[in-house]
Amino acid sequence: MNEWLYVALFMIVGAIIPIGAILAGAILSPKKPNPIKQSTYECGIEPVGDAWVQFKVQYYIFALVFLVFDVEAVFLFPWAVKLGQLGLYAVVEGIIFISILVVGLLYAWRKGMLEWS
């Protein structure tokens, strides 16, 4: 049997448990909504404006740098699995691969893009 069926079952049961708990809460809890109770929480003061706020460009940069390193790690996992059976040349290949990306990290740092200013 495909081993991913086990994973699928874990996901299904893992969703059923919280759904069950929330449904139990929905059945047992009182429901007495009123406009003040349902208003957005803003420290007891009436909410001002939209919840939408302008975000810093840094979030985008962090996500992009992360994406680059995520893809890098994906490439490195097969390399790491096989490393024990390969010679020194494979280690050097991996080191070159990582070093090229560290240059990018250094560039982003020198440009001040990794700082939360």
């Binding site: 992009l64 740098v65 680059v68 893809v71 090229i100 990306l101 990018g104 560039y107 893009m113």
Partner: peptide
């Protein structure tokens, strides 16, 4: 494999 690393570097530098 190594060119992929250069490509990722280019993507990062471009974004920055």
């Amino acid at each position: 494999f190594e060119v992929a690393s250069v490509l990722l570097l280019a993507a990062m530098i471009g974004a920055v």
